[in-house]
Design a protein around this nucleic acid. Structure first.
Lengths: 149, 149
DNA sequence: TCCTTCACTTGAGCTTCTCAAGCATTATCA
DNA sequence: TGATAATGCTTGAGAAGCTCAAGTGAAGGA
């Protein structure tokens, strides 16, 4: 028996790694579950994610805050906003109070695309396999695990 | 009262979208929680992910299967393998039974790097906020949600 | 007013990724 | 066996994504 690989409870300590694998795996499955639609819409995953993040019911998002939300450099957001504008899915709007700030807002077509993505996920993602209770449990645990309980 | 945004149980149907946000958000937090180490090791997120995926206790992985696991084109794996070899973290090995196949295996240094990443996650990721029971619950729910119960 | 700070953009340059084409090895089957 | 097909990997071209440094214009404080 090989002590070096068994002693010290290595198997038990392996739990966090497995959890990480599961979370990343599920994230991958989820983005994969809309990819077909996203490709049909002639979008890349990155652009689709921006559309996903742009809630039309919330306040317009300054590009800088969008960069924070996407965890990337502001200059990258400039590029992504350019592409979405080219495609007619979003447009820049000046901030009413601050001339430096520009916000990115979905066009009606963008809102429609976003709606289709959400619909698609609801119907095809494996999350549908969970009943309401389980979804609620999962939501609570994920909130805990995200550190923003 | 605006019926168009309230009627039809929109709020209730919004649950899957929220869950997706949570899962993607947690995935982002988790990869973010090792980023500091990854940068110190002079690795990109992509390369770090390959190292993460390469379990030294499992059978050597043919590049083609690695492409499947990473959900990318085989030609991309060629490139990633090149980089990891340059850095001395992994090396290609011929498959004993099939001359066409090459496998990618972590070097001792690569194994060490992987161990440090796992250790880092265990100590710093928000998953640590969950007790053993909650971790087990989460694992079970994620397995269900991933469709590979 | 002057200077600083802030938000965004631009340009250079790298990494990641895909697609099509190519090479070598293995499998199939007449 | 020998021709043909299938498989696994690599190469090259090119697009997308991303960052860093530098630049422009607006806002705010001394």
């Amino acid at each position: 028996m090989n002590l070096s690989s068994y002693a010290g409870g290595v198997a038990a300590d392996d739990t966090p790694r497995v959890l990480v694998d599961q979370v990343l795996g599920l994230a991958s499955v989820l983005t994969g579950s809309v990819r077909e639609l996203v490709r049909d819409l002639d979008l890349t995953d990155t652009l689709a994610n921006v559309v996903w993040v742009l809630d039309p019911d919330a306040d317009p998002v300054p590009l800088r805050r969008l960069a924070g939300r996407l965890q990337c450099d502001p200059s990258n957001v400039t590029l992504l906003a350019d592409r979405l504008e080219e495609k007619g899915l979003a447009e820049r709007r000046p901030h009413p109070d601050d001339g430096r700030v520009r916000t990115l807002v979905l066009t009606p077509e963008g809102v429609q695309v976003r709606r289709r993505m959400i619909e698609y996920v609801r119907n095809r993602s494996p999350l549908a396999a969970l009943d309401a209770d389980q979804q609620e449990q999962l939501r609570a645990l994920l909130a805990l695990a995200s550190g923003r309980d």
